Computed example of a mutant assay.
Amino acid sequence: MLLKPDLLLKIKRYYSIIRDIALNLNLIQGHLKYTKFIILCRSRTGSNLLLNQLQFHENVRMFYEVFSPDNSPKEFWDYINHDIQIIRDLKNNNPIKLIDDFVYREMPLNISAVGFKLFYYHARKGKQQEIWQYLEDRQDIKIIHLVRRNLLKVHVSQQMALATNSWYLKNGKKLDSNTIIELDYEQTRRAFEETKKLEAENEIFLKNHQILKIFYEDIVQNNVLEMEKIQNFLEVKHTPVYISTKKQSTKSLPKKIKNYSELKTSFQGSPYASFFE
């Protein structure tokens, strides 16, 4: 009988816990010679899909949003052998120590790559800002730059998530398919421009790093090929990985946007006209 993806992920996590405990007790060997990386992106670009697939790889230790401003319950799995309050204090007051001592720490020998997800706008206040200079200086850290070609779908996904307060679905869960939104032209145009600006700025900022640019659309259309490309970049063995996340909506854009026709007309002749079906 085949095990469900969620159960497989839990089994992998429990093995990780056991290995970490054994490493801390000097019962097994550890090392630091693994590939260090981050997934750099904005929200609503399929980052949970990519992160989730990498979590399934037996040789990858994939942390969640280390510098998210929210205290996510996913931190429980990231730092299960540690006092979570200590972790949260370090996140705010000594973020570099958090990365060095808890993320890119000594790992069991079976781990070949360690990474975490970072949004463009994470860690932009207080002591947390220090990590951006740290990342610029640490050219040994590889960058998976995840982007989405169709920025209208990014913006719609963002607005739908805000409207429904649903940001992440697992297989078997459903979203209200009747949700329809109305978009303001100026707000939508500014959203496009801001995302393009952030994409360009971050590529320039980390230009001295090894960067792999990945498109969400390609992950969806040819998942096996794209995952092989990512695994080569991370220098881990080729392993089939599961998908346990679920698209929040499969409806076409005209069925999600109340004023779709008017919006499409307004963007005709602009650099963003191709985003409309």
Rank of each mutant, 00 (worst) to 15 (best):
L2T: 12
D6P: 02
D6L: 12
L8M: 11
K12F: 12
K12G: 13
R13Y: 10
R13P: 02
R13S: 12
Y14R: 11
Y15A: 13
S16T: 08
R19C: 07
N24S: 15
G30H: 09
G30N: 11
H31G: 05
F37H: 06
I38N: 09
R42Y: 07
R42N: 13
S47W: 08
N48W: 04
L50C: 10
L50S: 07
Q53F: 05
Q55V: 02
H57M: 09
E58K: 15
E58W: 04
E58N: 10
N59D: 12
N59P: 00
N59R: 14
R61N: 14
M62N: 10
S68M: 06
P69C: 07
W77H: 09
I80L: 05
I80E: 00
N81L: 12
H82L: 06
H82N: 09
I86H: 06
R88W: 04
R88T: 04
D89V: 00
N93M: 00
K97A: 10
L98R: 03
D100I: 01
F102R: 03
V103R: 00
V103A: 01
V103D: 04
Y104A: 04
P108W: 00
P108V: 04
P108G: 04
I111N: 09
F116M: 03
L118F: 02
Y120C: 05
H122I: 01
R124S: 01
G126P: 00
Q128W: 05
Y134C: 02
Y134D: 02
L135W: 05
L135G: 02
L135P: 01
Q139N: 09
I141A: 05
L151E: 11
V154G: 02
Q159L: 06
Q159V: 07
M160V: 13
A163I: 00
A163Y: 06
W167I: 09
L169C: 05
K170L: 14
K170G: 08
G172L: 05
G172E: 09
G172A: 06
L175R: 14
S177F: 03
N178E: 13
I181C: 08
D184C: 07
E186S: 07
L198R: 04
A200L: 12
N202W: 11
I204V: 15
I204K: 15
I204P: 00
F205M: 14
Q210T: 08
Q210W: 02
F215V: 09
F215S: 10
V220K: 13
V224T: 13
K229S: 08
E235Q: 14
Y242C: 10
K246H: 11
K247S: 13
Q248V: 08
Q248C: 10
S249W: 10
S252I: 09
S261P: 08
T265I: 12
S266E: 15
S266V: 03
G269E: 08
A273W: 03
A273C: 01
